[in-house]
């Protein structure tokens, strides 16, 4: 019994950290640019494909591939932000939804053409393959990697928001974009960088989470609800909220998989719908703080 609970909590934590990495950029773009981005999961998929290709085709070491994958996702996101997405800020929500759903379809099609329709594994180095003995339980090392990378990202996000000039500019822009602009902050650049960094984090999550959310062309559509749910339950715009929501939803779905496999998805969605019926603005609704 205690061991089952420990399994649920540990696996749920690893899964939750993956969800957090993928979703945190989404909550920032929503809070900051009021931009509803259904294509965000695409950046996680891009990360996954990039890492898989680098490792299998170029023999790049895992850790380096992980970093490069995040950079690739970030650069593609930056290109998209400059070419298309920046024109959508301030447009009606429906337009944003339609455009980003269009991007999802294009992404699915391109991924299918380039990488085929089957799952693409992200091969692990021998060191990280297999299982680790935690003393009371043996678990796949991959999960530990996911949890550790997730915690490091969290630390990085905190440092970025709290300790850098960019963080100050970002928070000022969230509080009041117009005033920030009048103070000489280049809000356009802040938006672009925030978008790109969020995508890079998603790319990271796509790689280390590849075991839990396998990389395939339909990835952005298949897990769309999951990523949106993290943001909605956490309270759009709240980084802390999405951390809590990611851990909560990750644990709920993991518990479902252990206790009633086959009903995990329904269980997850029902919990999420109940939370949102109770608090439509999410658990940590904040209008003006990250």
């Amino acid at each position: 019994m205690a061991s089952l609970l420990a399994s649920i909590l540990i696996d749920g934590f690893a899964y939750g950290m993956v969800l957090f990495m993928v979703s945190v950029g989404l909550t920032v773009t929503l809070g900051l640019m009021r931009f509803v981005n259904l294509a965000h999961g695409m950046f996680a998929m891009i990360g996954g494909y990039a890492a898989a290709s680098l490792i299998t085709m170029a023999g790049v070491p895992y850790i380096l591939a992980l970093i490069l994958a995040a950079i690739v996702a970030g650069i593609i996101a930056l290109g998209l932000e400059i070419s298309v997405i920046r024109w959508m800020y301030g447009r009606p929500e429906l337009d944003q939804v339609l455009l980003t759903i269009g991007l999802v379809f294009i992404g699915i099609a391109l991924a299918g053409m380039l990488f085929g329709n089957s799952l693409v594994p992200v091969p692990l180095p021998d060191m990280l393959r297999g299982a680790s003995d935690l003393g009371f339980r043996v678990m796949p090392t991959q999960r530990i990697v996911a949890a550790v990378v997730g915690l490091l990202s969290l630390l990085a996000i905190w440092l970025l928001l709290d300790r850098t000039m960019f963080g100050i500019r970002l928070r000022a822009t969230v509080d009041n974009a117009r005033a920030a602009g009048e103070l000489g902050i280049n809000t356009r650049r802040v938006y672009a960088i925030a978008f790109s960094v969020g995508a890079a984090l998603a790319g990271l999550g796509g790689v280390v989470g590849a075991e839990l959310l396998p990389v395939e062309p339909y990835y952005p559509l298949k897990y769309l609800v999951l990523f949106l749910a993290v943001v909605a339950v956490g309270g759009p715009g709240s980084v802390f909220g999405s951390l809590i929501a990611a851990l909560l939803l990750g644990t709920v779905e993991t518990a479902g998989k252990y206790l009633a496999p086959g009903f995990a998805t329904i269980g997850l969605f029902v919990v999420m719908l109940l939370v949102l019926s109770w608090r439509p603005d999410g658990l940590f609704h904040r209008k003006s703080r990250l």
Partner: peptide
């Protein structure tokens, strides 16, 4: 009672629950 992204996500979730 919801709006924006939350509303959108709930519509997807409801149809997926029904699907399941």
């Amino acid at each position: 009672r919801a709006h924006g992204l939350t509303f959108l996500m709930m519509t997807v979730a409801i149809s997926q629950v029904l699907y399941e």
